[in-house]
Amino acid sequence: MSRNLVLANLNLYAVLPNLEELVRHDQEMALLIKDWDICIQFSALGGPAAFAEFKNGECTVGRGKHFSPTVKLFFATPGHLNKMFDGKAQPIPLKGFTKLGFLSKEFSKLTDRMEYYLKPSEESLSNPDFVSLNTLMTMHTAGRAVVELAVNDPVASHVSKGMMDGSLLMKVLPDGPAITLNFKNGKAGFQKGETASPMACMLLKDMDTANKLLNQKLDAFSAIAGGEVIIKGQTPMMDAMDLILDRIPHYLDA
């Protein structure tokens, strides 16, 4: 699978779903979408498809094609889609021409806000509320990226094939957020929140530790030795997940 195709999968299946948490936790964005009743379909020729549906003040991001989207945005290639995520290209609208103004103004406010959280400045990281949402969204992005990379990235899929079945919990102490990755037959499934019976756990001492670790500002080995990051259980699963996570920067930070 080409790099552009893997990245397109990551953009639609790991990054885009953060809209759900954004409108749930950011008051300004919650207010913005309060009355929206729209479904936007994204699809790339020879690549992935996903939709973002806004209704009743909530957002649902789904995989594949929606049965009746309000707007259809088409991309000629996975690379075209990736350029849009970088703000360097425009999609080709196939349906919902009357909504183009909405897309360029209202929807852009939402995506700009998502970028604000996912690509944090040093200044914004001094705000505890920002740190909380950045941590949540980064954790979700990482978890969902593991699912995609385990299938589509050659290195990660090689690693995941050797992984034992079971659930892996990543949680910020004491009360979350948390994600669970369920591995079976070398494939991973993403779940928001905790599992009752994980095979392996990575527990992060507090939000600040989690934020630094997820933003690659904390040496994991030192954090483990110092007790800021606690790992337990079937740690070979953790080692394998770490190898997969280390593939993310080959795409999303490149």
């Binding site: 080995f221 030192s222 030795a225 110092g226 790992i231």
Partner: peptide, 25 residues
């Protein structure tokens, strides 16, 4: 270890690393 982590990769690398000692503390 905190001193080591500043000047040695992993602080203690390889099979003597604290990482597989659970919990490390």
């Amino acid at each position: 270890f905190q001193r080591a982590a500043k000047v040695i990769p992993c602080g203690i690398y390889g099979h003597l690393s604290p990482a597989p000692l659970i919990p490390a503390d």
